[in-house]
Structures are given as structure tokens and as C-alpha cells.
Design a binder for these strands. Structure first.
Length: 467
RNA sequence: GCUUGCGUGGUGUAGUGGCCCAUCAUUUCGGGUUUUCAUCCCGGCGACCCGGGUUCGAAUCCCGGCGCGAGCACCA
């Protein structure tokens, strides 16, 4: 028999070091399911190898993806919820601007960076045709002057100039040709206001910060492969060694469809969704609210591993991991949908105890019947076995206390409370009215509704977890 | 168009030249336990994109084809 590898593959090129990993979301909204992969994979390596996990806020865009202040609070909370430990370091890019400016200047001083005043369209021509733009030949002094003009409110305006890394306009890969490192933005940043005018772009900011933080391994989506190549060119200009880099492929979850942070934000504002934890959304707060446990998310991502294949996974895979996490602690309770009353005639136990979970020592639940019980309308009209109680005919006449034949076993509620079960079904929120067995479990308890599935107790009813 | 990456059962995944007529999980089907259509247990079905080549031997190496994805933003 072959040996089967368990868990994540070994981290390459560790050479006895403690790894330093990072996860760098844009705080333009709360974390989503998609983010959880980066958090889980990087977090697991850091935890298992005694290394460090850096949580970095890449908040250098105030225009296209303006930062959301609440996200700086919620992201670390969700990171800890998901990983099971707090990040070892938190870095906020907007508070590290001095460093980035310092390295931008070093780049100009070193002659491998220049300020380019070509329009985006004009530069695109140069990129496509492998020709050098006129700005490329300017000397260091000119570039330093132009750099000052970029930083001067009286100087260049947004769109007038960018800082570029001098690579080679004849590089085979067009994405790498003299790529932009910084641009002018005049929108106020919610954290640092208008203190800065020139803001680094991802490839520059991230590259410099990884160096400053001593990041040893970068694990990220393969859509960032060209980012690695760009950054490697910058590193060699500075004489630095680029971290070991590992990629994963694209993941599609059909049930989630295509959500973007900015689209969700709009839909919440318009009232299409109640909030970021609306059960239909793929945010971590929604998943948490829906009773998806962090250990299930971790097992899910670890099982997918680090292949570069683009994959489509059904949510049932995540649910199966979640069932393993929640079943042992989920007390069994009855919820009767579309309740239908049955008056019992004959002799039967009026009070008694029923197991809450056959595999555990969980305290049993107690029932007390006055004159009848509720059953689901769909079950009515035929002889039934009331689970743990008695056999009845279609009119409620008690036929046997012990189970006498193979008739269907159904759940029932005596007394109980009217309640509502909410089910997130794609873009719809389905609600089912019913009678919920009386109990004293607190809000947040995940229970198993017999013959229905797992649900989590909320303040105003039940929310379906999954089957 | 240029660049770059991927292609193992329905869905994921293990496998880096012989231990592979291919692993494990999930889905599905059948059975068992169970007074839940749940949990748990057992079993079945089911795969190396195609074509060449290298080799005694290829899922694994090489070439070509086909298919799918991503980058080429003054977003991250």
C-alpha cells in the first residue's frame, strides 16, 4: 500500500527557520468565505510550525476600494474565530506610508525608478509595442524633482504622473514591463486623512512590506503569479531575496454565485440584504451565524490543499465537515412544520422522558401531554408511530404503546411554542412556521430538528444550518 | 494577441518512473445499528484529457494537440 499524505504538504525551503506568513485583505468590507482560504492555510502553517501569522491591512486605495473603518475592528475578530488564535502581528499599510515613501525614494536614487507623466493610454502603447516612453531616460535629479511635484498639492494632479519601476520594455511578459509602483490620490483616507498624496500600489507596497516584516513564505492565489514576477524584479533591484511562493487555484462555490464586497455593500444599503450577516451572503459573519464552525472551514480548506487547479466545490462538502463538528453536541428536538393537531384517544403515557442524543450523556427532555399533540400536516391522515410514544390510527386512536408494525415513525410536539424556521436558499430566504418543542437551550445553540436537519437557535426563531 | 498556469472516478484529493488493473473524502446506490429522512458502521458503482515519443517499465519524463483558468489597471 502507498502512503497517503495527511493534511497540508510540507512547506518548501524552510531550512530550519520558523516561517513568517501573512494574510493581507483589503479592509473595504468584512471577510468572506473566499478570504477564509488564505487565513486557514497561512494560519495552519504558522501554528503547526511554530511560526508567525501577520494580518496585514492593504488599505492603500482610497478611490476604487475605499477602506471601511469597521473592518479594521471586525477582521481581527473573525481571523481569531477562524484560525483559533490571534495573529502574531497586525500591520496597517496606511500607517506605514513613511516606509514606502522612503523606499520609493531609494528606488529613484538607485536609478531603477522613474516618474512617468505619460497617460495610461499612451503608456499602454509603449507596453504593447515594447517601446520606451520619453520619461524613462530622465536622470535621477529630474526624477527627484518630479517625485516632489507628485507629492506637492500645487504640482501634479491625480492621473498626471505615476512612479514606475524600471524593468525592461522588451520583457516577453507584457505585464512586467515598467510596472507602476505608486500614484496620486487626493481622496481622504478614513484613517490618515490627507496626510499623504502619493500612495503605493499593491505590488510595491506588498513587496516592500514583505521584506520589512521578514516574510519567509507567501501563499496566495495563482492570479497573483505575475505579481510575484514583478516583485521579484523589484527585489533584485534592491538586492533582496524574494520569499518562497506557493499558489492555489481558483475556487467556485456554485451556491454562492458571484459576490463582490462592493456589490454586497450596495445590496445591503439598498435593503436587498439585511446586513453583512444575512444568511444568504458568503461572509464569515453570515456563515458563523448559520452555524458553520471554524473547524469545519479549516478541515474544508486543508482538504482542498494547495493545488493550482481551478475547481468547483459543492457546499455539501463543507456541510459534511460541519456535521462532524456539530452533531455530537446537537441536542435532538422536534419542530413540527405546518402543525396539525391530533387528539389522542386511549391509554398512553401522559408524561415521560426522551433521549436528547442517543450517543451522549446529554440530559433527556421531558414531555407532558394534556389531550393531544401536534404533528406535521404532511404526516397526517394515516396510521403513524409517534416517535418514543405510541402507535395511532389515522384519527388519533392509540393502538399500541410498543411499536407494533412498520408504519412511519414521525416526530411530534406536545405543547411547545410557535416558532419560525428560516432557510437560506440561494437568493431567497424561505420561512416555515411551526411548533417548536419547549426547551431551555440558549440562543446560539445548534440543535438537530428530528427528521429535518440542523438548526441554530436565534432570538426570534430558528435558522437552518443544513441537513 | 502576448504572457502565464492547470488537466486523476459526479465533486475534490493522494500519488514526482516499478509498491498503482491507482489513495482517501464527499456524492450516489445497497445493507446494518437506531422508535429521526439524522448520527454511526459495512459494502457497491465510478478516474489517470487525446496522440506520439523516451524507457525493460509512465498517472508520473519529453513533444504536439485539445480543453479550462488567470495576468497584460494610475484595484487588491
Amino acid at each position: 500500500m502507498q502512503k497517503r499524505r495527511e493534511g497540508l504538504p510540507e512547506l518548501p525551503n524552510l531550512n530550519g527557520r520558523k516561517p513568517v506568513l501573512r494574510f493581507a485583505p483589503n479592509p473595504n468590507g468584512p471577510l468572506s468565505f473566499g478570504h477564509s482560504r488564505g487565513l486557514v492555510i497561512n494560519g495552519e502553517y504558522a501554528k503547526n510550525l511554530g511560526g508567525e501569522l501577520i494580518l496585514r491591512f492593504d488599505d492603500t486605495d482610497t478611490t476604487v476600494k475605499p477602506p471601511m473603518l469597521e473592518a479594521y475592528e471586525s477582521i481581527p475578530v473573525q481571523q481569531e474565530w477562524l484560525c483559533g488564535f490571534p495573529a502574531h502581528r497586525i500591520v496597517i499599510a496606511s500607517e506605514r506610508m513613511e516606509q514606502y515613501h522612503q523606499y520609493a525614494k531609494k528606488m529613484i536614487d538607485g536609478g531603477f525608478g522613474y516618474v512617468c507623466t505619460c497617460s495610461a493610454e499612451a503608456f499602454k502603447e509603449h507596453r504593447v509595442n515594447m517601446t520606451e516612453c520619453p520619461c524613462r531616460d530622465n536622470n535621477v535629479e529630474t526624477n527627484l524633482n518630479r517625485w516632489m511635484k507628485m507629492n506637492d498639492p500645487e504640482g501634479y494632479q491625480p492621473g498626471d504622473a505615476v512612479l514606475r519601476v524600471k524593468t525592461d520594455m522588451t520583457l516577453k511578459n507584457p505585464a512586467l514591463r515598467d510596472w507602476p509602483a505608486a500614484r496620486i490620490q487626493t481622496n481622504a483616507h478614513p484613517r490618515v486623512g490627507n496626510r499623504w498624496r502619493v500612495w503605493p500600489l499593491l505590488d510595491f507596497q506588498s513587496a516592500v512590506e514583505d521584506y520589512l516584516q521578514g516574510v519567509t513564505h507567501i501563499i496566495r492565489g495563482k492570479d497573483l503569479m505575475d505579481s510575484t514576477r514583478k516583485q521579484t524584479l523589484l527585489y533584485s533591484h534592491f538586492g533582496w531575496q524574494y520569499p518562497e511562493t506557493i499558489y492555489w487555484g481558483r475556487v467556485k462555490v456554485h451556491e454562492f454565485g458571484a459576490f463582490s464586497t462592493s456589490q454586497m455593500k450596495k445590496d445591503i444599503e439598498s435593503g436587498k440584504f439585511s446586513d453583512w450577516d444575512d444568511p444568504r451572503l458568503p461572509t464569515l459573519s453570515a456563515l458563523s451565524r448559520r452555524g458553520i464552525r471554524p473547524e469545519a472551514l479549516r478541515a474544508f480548506w486543508i482538504e482542498l490543499g494547495l493545488t493550482q487547479k481551478d475547481i468547483a466545490v459543492p457546499l455539501s462538502t463543507l456541510y459534511s465537515h460541519n456535521t462532524k463538528a456539530i452533531d455530537i453536541n446537537a441536542p435532538r428536538l422536534a419542530f413540527v412544520r405546518n402543525a396539525f393537531p391530533i387528539y389522542l384517544e386511549g391509554d398512553f403515557p401522559k408524561e415521560g422522558l426522551i433521549q436528547s442524543h442517543s450517543d451522549t450523556e446529554m440530559p433527556p427532555r421531558q414531555f407532558s401531554i394534556d389531550q393531544g399533540v401536534w404533528i406535521e400536516e404532511e404526516d397526517s391522515g394515516k396510521p403513524l408511530r409517534l416517535k418514543d410514544l405510541c402507535d395511532i390510527d389515522e384519527n388519533g386512536r392509540v393502538e399500541s404503546i410498543d411499536r407494533s408494525d412498520k408504519r412511519s415513525v414521525v416526530h411530534w410536539v406536545a405543547g411547545g411554542e410557535p416558532s419560525i424556521l428560516t432557510i437560506a436558499s440561494g437568493q431567497d430566504l424561505v420561512t416555515v412556521e411551526g411548533i417548536f418543542e419547549s426547551n431551555s437551550y440558549p440562543v446560539g445553540t445548534i440543535v438537530q430538528l428530528e427528521r429535518i436537519g440542523y438548526a441554530i437557535i436565534e432570538k426570534n426563531g430558528l435558522l437552518m444550518v443544513h441537513d
